[in-house]
Design a protein around this nucleic acid. Structure first.
Length: 205
DNA sequence: ACAACGATACCCT
DNA sequence: GGGTATCGTTGTT
C-alpha cells in the first residue's frame, strides 16, 4: 500500500519549467492527490499527453491567448482546467509564463480515497474511475473553479514524488487521442501494460 | 443571435 | 467500432 505523498515531496516549479515532452514523460509514476470532502483522493499518473507552445495545431494555445485558455499562458506549475463535451480535463502548465504549453493528464491508477472517488463518479468499477481525462477530473472533483491554481503551493491539490520507489516501467509513446490535427506526433506517453490507461495500449511502431 | 465543433464518455452492436 | 448526449467556446451573420 502506497503512502500518501508528503508536502515536501511536491514537484516544484523547476520540474515543470522544462521542455513539455520531458515533463509529460516524467510525470508518469508521480502521485496526483486532491483533497475533496475532507479526504485525500488520487493515485499514480499512468498516461499523459504533451501540448506544445510552438507549431502544434492541436494545442489550445495555437491561436493565441484568450479568456478561456489564459491559465495555459501562466507560469509553469499552474493548473489549466478546460471544459469539453460538458465535462472537464486537467493539465499542468509547462515551460514558463507566456509560452502556452501544458501536459494533459489522461489517467491515473487509483490509490487513495477510492470510496470517495467511487462516490464522485457514481460507479463502483475501479477500471472506470479514472481512465480518461474527464473521468479523472470527475473522480477528483476538479472543475473550472480549479483553473489557474498553483500546483506547487496549493493546499488542496498537488503532484508529488512517490514516497516508496516504484518499479521500473516501460514507457510507450504514441499519437495523441481524440484530435484531428498533428496526428503523427508521438506526444502521448503511458505505462506499458497498465490497465488504467485509456485508449490503445500498443506501441505505435 | 446562432451554428458548428470539440484534448469525452457512454451505450449499444 | 459507431452513434450521440451535452454545453462552453468560438467564429460567423
Amino acid at each position: 500500500m502506497n503512502k500518501l505523498p508528503l508536502q515536501k515531496d511536491r514537484l516544484t516549479r523547476e520540474f515543470y519549467a522544462r521542455p513539455t515532452e520531458i515533463v509529460a514523460r516524467e510525470l508518469l509514476g508521480k502521485c496526483l492527490v486532491r483533497r475533496t470532502n475532507r479526504q485525500w483522493v488520487g493515485g499514480i499518473i499512468v498516461e499523459t499527453e504533451a501540448y506544445l507552445a510552438d507549431g502544434d495545431p492541436a494545442s489550445h494555445s495555437a491561436r493565441g491567448k484568450t479568456r478561456s485558455n489564459a491559465s495555459m499562458f501562466m507560469d509553469a506549475g499552474t493548473l489549466y482546467v478546460y471544459p469539453i463535451h460538458a465535462k472537464y480535463c486537467m493539465n499542468a502548465v509547462t515551460e514558463g509564463p507566456g509560452r502556452g504549453s501544458a501536459v494533459l493528464i489522461r489517467a491515473i491508477q487509483p490509490q487513495w480515497g477510492i470510496q470517495q472517488m467511487q462516490s464522485n463518479r457514481q460507479t463502483q468499477d475501479l477500471k472506470r474511475l479514472t481512465r480518461g481525462p474527464a473521468m479523472l477530473c470527475q473522480a477528483l472533483a476538479v472543475d473550472r473553479g480549479d483553473d489557474g491554481i498553483n500546483l506547487t503551493t496549493d493546499r488542496n491539490i498537488l503532484i508529488a514524488q512517490p514516497r516508496s520507489p516504484s518499479p521500473a516501467t516501460d514507457v510507450y509513446a504514441t499519437p495523441r487521442i481524440g484530435i484531428s490535427k498533428a496526428i503523427d506526433e508521438r506526444l502521448r506517453f503511458f505505462y506499458r501494460g497498465n490497465s488504467f490507461v485509456s485508449g490503445p495500449k500498443r506501441d505505435h511502431r
